[in-house]
Nucleic acid binder design. Sequence first.
DNA 1: CTGAAAGCGCTAACAG
DNA 2: CTGTTAGCGCTTTCAG
Lengths: 341, 341
Amino acid sequence: LQKKTVTLADVAREAGIDVSTASRALAGAYGVRAHIREKVQAIAKQLQYHPNLVARGLATGRSETFGILVSDIRNPFFAEVVRGAEDAANASGYGILLCNSDLDPQKQMRYFRSLLNKRVDGILMNSVAALSRDQQKDLAGSAVPIVLLHRPSGYRCFSTVVCDNFHGGCLAGEHLVKLGHRKMAHLTSRARHGNLTERARGFLKAIKPAEPVLIRGSHSVQGGYDMAKDLLGRKTGITAIFAANDAIAFGAMRAILEAGLRIPDNISLMGFDDVEFASIVHPPLTTISQPKYEMGHAAIEILSKLVQHRDAPPEHRMFEVSMVERLSCSPGRDRSLKCLA
Amino acid sequence: LQKKTVTLADVAREAGIDVSTASRALAGAYGVRAHIREKVQAIAKQLQYHPNLVARGLATGRSETFGILVSDIRNPFFAEVVRGAEDAANASGYGILLCNSDLDPQKQMRYFRSLLNKRVDGILMNSVAALSRDQQKDLAGSAVPIVLLHRPSGYRCFSTVVCDNFHGGCLAGEHLVKLGHRKMAHLTSRARHGNLTERARGFLKAIKPAEPVLIRGSHSVQGGYDMAKDLLGRKTGITAIFAANDAIAFGAMRAILEAGLRIPDNISLMGFDDVEFASIVHPPLTTISQPKYEMGHAAIEILSKLVQHRDAPPEHRMFEVSMVERLSCSPGRDRSLKCLA
DNA sequence: CTGAAAGCGCTAACAG
DNA sequence: CTGTTAGCGCTTTCAG
């Protein structure tokens, strides 16, 4: 923490040896006599030597840094993933360069480019779905390992970390059906979005032969609010709602309460993700839980591995989901009459 | 995005000039004939040249990167601040290295050190309160500009970005008093924490001569839950609670509801921060709003300025707060009898 | 205005 | 085992 930074040359001079020897001595032994290594290490500590990682990066071609490109860190889902990623990175001596893309293709590509220019050793992106075919090809053509948080439709050269979205959708559907619900709605994204599509597929399959009222909008709190308001205005007589993620569910919750209805008495509500606030809202939200922190962690582990073995094939990890039952759902069949919607 | 990276030397060779000239040409003119500059720029684009920022960093001593050291990005408050910071950084061509310290002094110092080793151009830290005198001196002694999100008690060499916590506390107190509350509680942190202390001071002053029941714990959702549970168990007869931040308020909210009480009918509740979920919980939380995004933005602006003028004095910016009134508070005086607490 | 040369601090082949 | 020699790719004096 000194003003005048001490370099490896200083250490070497003080020890009366060459910088290359000093480098090796500090690098972790191998090919340097024990007593001289210890001496160098002692001097390094005494002089408070700290390697200039920029210089090392230039010499080695590795920056000991990963890039993370999410749509918005304010989304609690990503915050959790990023935290898991950061912890994993830190444990392996890596740093994290954070970028927020808002899923804007332009921004995404610009950030990607700048991460490349900074010579990151790998990149974790939440989605390439908004990118054109050519843009995706550009990413694929770059030399850096990339792991995605969804299954891309096209290129197979990306690694992926996902949860079992399909199964999650099934769990939600099965739960609501078991509770006796027959007329249900599903609130999901308008945009093409691999994960949410899978959730919808699982849900549809599970509630068959029933068919949900399908509403599409923005997969955000505001979007959930808008969709639910629209839904309630239509008087469809549904008794339960499955929101494609918790944010949508929170928005829907507000719309439902504002409409003078009660959860779960009049309408049952389920979410997906299990963000922290799912347990804090009132009523606490029944939702499908995915291991966000672990997924971020796993993504970085994959990148670390890929850095070691440059030629290793992309890796794919799928995490199990589970339903966490709280208080936002109740039996549906016999109550359907009471439904004011 | 090509496999074989093209260097400045490639561009120079193609243009038939020296790398130094090419460097200047791309750097932004100055001292190079217009037509040759354009030629170089054209070739650079055609060859898809992208500067290696690690190399540039080594040469210039600047990394075009800021470090951000927050306790936990999963805290929505910090997510918002970081997003503002990232946007500001990006706008000036900077990147953001994100670290989560959990306010653990060891971790904090380790991260700080590693940011220094990566040669970041400045650091945004949320707090140094957990650090010892000596550790703070270490930070102060480093050459990088540092901006803090609170007023440190000791060293004056840090820049700061804060909101008017004292005034925010006053606003909360005045509001509750105006509503007729006389017996109130304040839920705050156990740890020394500049910002929260200020809020408490403002609150105390505003409700004078009334004296609040003061409860201390962890400034988190769980902490709020525990504190409120403790409080309600004591049967103090309070009719309103001012939580030192929204997280505490959310926890308190759950404890209150679990105790079979209603907000605001039995107990009024106020928070501080105005995170997104303050408007989503039920009832929506009345709280003191501080401009989180703008504060992160401002912090980076200060760092950018400090990078330019290395010798400029530390800068201090205080942001105004405002009360946003939602539905978690109601008149207190005549209801005090109804209070079951 | 432009080229030559030096160097940022470190690593990595290659001799000795 | 250790020192010598080359760079990594870029910026930046300093001459010409």
